[in-house]
């Protein structure tokens, strides 16, 4: 499986799209230097918002461009036959592709975090009195959880990738899952209020309750707002949220591997 991981990694880092996304993210990171100046006191918070959003958005763009095309390209260009003719099982193929993708993301996140840290060091030294609530650990905490989010999102991309051969359909399914997953906790909260119970039919409310267990709760990995204010989660919460991301991804990948095992490759 290692060769597959390294090939996927090399294929990813050689992609021109990746560098385009890098340039865009770095531009947003540097934009934080200008935008922070528009604010009065919490300059650190605004700078962190910009930097974290740039990293997070870059992660989403890489997923939507690179990851979505990964399996579709193998099927389209028939390179999958070459891979599967080697002593690699279909299950190993799914896991190898996924882990290879994660190494690409790890590379991207390390690079972007490094650059954003340099910008933050500069801003912090320039406006030392306006970085009161800033905390490096909290910043890295938000990046870490964003990586977990990307980990879950990519497992879903792999899942839809083995179901459909079209990268566009995969993208549509993935975006829908991301939007639903990101807003599901707000919807659940709405249902729990009196207004929500009145306006929704009981069957709809039950359907949403079922969906909440199927769709990942992406909001659980969004620590950008609290991290921008220097707040840290407890060790138990840290472990719990990480475990949730890992368990969900493993389940989705196991399902993807099962489906791919039975899939007829024409």
């Amino acid at each position: 499986m290692w060769p597959l991981i390294s090939v996927t990694f090399l294929e990813g880092v050689r992609s021109r799209i990746l560098y385009g996304i890098f340039l865009f993210a770095i531009f947003v990171v540097f934009l934080s230097i200008i935008f922070a100046n528009f604010f009065m006191q919490d300059l650190g918070k605004v700078a962190v918002d910009f930097n974290l959003s740039a990293i997070s958005f870059a992660g989403l763009l890489i997923s939507a461009s690179l990851s979505v095309n990964l399996i579709a390209k193998d099927l389209d260009k028939r390179t999958i036959y070459f891979v599967l003719s080697r002593p690699i099982t279909r299950v190993q193929y799914v896991w190898g592709k996924y882990l290879g993708l994660l190494t690409v993301f790890l590379f991207a996140y390390l690079l972007l975090t490094g650059i954003s840290c340099l910008v933050l060091v500069y801003l912090k030294s320039e406006y030392v009195n306006y970085f009161g609530s800033f905390n490096w650990l909290a910043y890295l905490q938000a990046v870490y959880f964003d990586f977990i989010k990307i980990m879950v999102l990519n497992s879903i991309i792999i899942f839809f990738g083995v179901i459909t051969t079209s990268s566009f359909v995969n993208l549509l399914f993935t975006v829908s899952t991301y939007v639903v997953g990101q807003s599901i906790s707000d919807v659940i909260h709405f249902i729990s209020t009196g207004r929500g119970q009145e306006s929704l039919a009981p069957a709809t409310a039950q359907l949403i309750t079922v969906i909440k267990y199927i769709v990942p709760n992406f909001e659980a990995f969004d620590f950008k707002v609290i991290s921008a204010h220097g707040m840290l989660v407890s060790a138990s919460e840290f472990g719990y949220f990480t475990l949730y991301g890992i368990v969900y991804s493993v389940i989705v990948l196991c399902l993807a591997a099962m489906i791919f095992k039975k899939k007829e490759l024409l």
Partner: peptide
């Protein structure tokens, strides 16, 4: 706007305050 901002609520707050 909370839902529409997806996971960019902090940034949305910055722009709205601006």
């Amino acid at each position: 706007s909370r839902v529409a901002a997806l996971d960019f609520q902090g940034l949305a707050a910055d722009f709205q305050l601006l």
